[in-house]
């Protein structure tokens, strides 16, 4: 949870594995790294067992690169595909029981604020649509109503991908899946609307076919959660196995879905805009000058 844990124990440095040495010497800890520099520094995420070509992995990779202070960040997840990758990153990962990730993150966030005071310690929940909108729905919504200061990111693959293709609350109406052969009978849940009603300070939808936008959205959400209140990002991360998307067409599918029903949207409260412009220098959210009144 600080730069102190990403260094060698004296005398042991030459015995450490290459990946660890690279991480300490050339990782992003304590530096300002961006998505555009990727490929020239050692990434926090490491080898993982997720499927080849998985869009969720791409999103997780970009999200972890985008964390403003990775050395001061804890991720929280739950059962589902995502944790297979998130747990392979060189930042602490807490595995909540199925559905309680936002409850765990609430306690963690409060505890870190008590322990470290003003030093920012970011808690980021990364969980799938099943863990967040179905099984963990109550805890997710309650954490937002309580105005818990952490970021919630939904990895929305619109299916229970890890257990064989059951429909989730986030599956689209009419969608036929292996374990939903008659098609889903209900509409996709409006988690974005609920996040706004529940009082989230920042709500955004994003698709991983625009890495710089993913970076920008994650940075803003984490920074707002530090100061203002809960933030929510809903990311379309297709399941190429359950939706039978060829791996080399995954990004094409992302683009089609983005154009169709997952357009980029961003909602900020006034307080969130003030925080971004005042504390973190986001010029686009500076209050616009009022035009001078002239007498004719």
């Amino acid at each position: 949870m600080s730069l102190d844990y990403v260094k060698f124990t004296p005398g042991f440095d030459k015995w450490m594995p290459k990946e660890y040495r690279d991480m300490v010497e050339h990782g992003p800890f304590g530096k300002k790294t961006t998505v555009s520099q990727v490929g020239s520094f050692k990434e926090i995420l490491e080898e993982h067992p997720m499927c080849a070509g998985c869009a969720m992995t791409l999103f997780i990779r970009l999200a972890i690169i985008a964390f403003p202070n990775p050395e001061d960040t804890i991720t929280v997840g739950t059962a589902g595909c995502g944790r297979l990758a998130i747990s392979q990153a060189a930042i602490p990962f807490v595995y909540g029981n199925y559905g309680d990730q936002n409850g765990v993150a609430s306690g963690l966030s409060r505890g870190l604020r008590l322990r470290f005071g003003d030093r920012p310690k970011d808690v980021v929940v990364l969980a799938g649509d099943g863990g967040m909108a179905d099984i963990g729905f109550a805890q997710t919504l309650h954490s937002w109503f309580r105005k818990e200061k952490f970021t919630t990111i939904m990895l929305d693959n619109e299916v229970y991908g890890n257990t064989g293709g059951q429909e989730s609350g986030m599956t689209n109406k009419g969608q036929v899946l292996k374990m939903a052969p008659l098609g889903k009978k209900f509409e996709k849940m409006d988690m974005l609307g609920m996040a706004k009603i529940a009082g989230c300070a920042y709500v955004a939808t994003v698709v991983p076919n625009n890495p710089r936008r993913v970076e920008s959205v994650i940075k803003k959400a984490v920074l707002i959660a530090r100061e203002v209140g809960p933030t929510y990002i809903q990311a379309y991360t297709s399941c190429n196995i359950e939706y039978a998307i060829p791996t080399d067409k995954v990004l094409e599918d992302c683009k089609e879905v983005e154009d169709d029903r997952y357009k980029f949207t961003e909602y900020l409260t006034d307080e969130a805009k003030e925080t971004l412009s005042g504390l973190y220098g986001y010029k686009e959210y500076l209050p616009k000058p009022v035009p001078a009144i002239t007498k004719n």
Partner: peptide, 18 residues
């Protein structure tokens, strides 16, 4: 363009040599 380094789902796999 460095796009492939940004879009690879695997970490530390497509790298860049200046």
């Amino acid at each position: 363009c460095k796009l492939c380094t940004q879009f690879c789902p695997e970490a530390n796999t497509i790298l860049y040599n200046d």
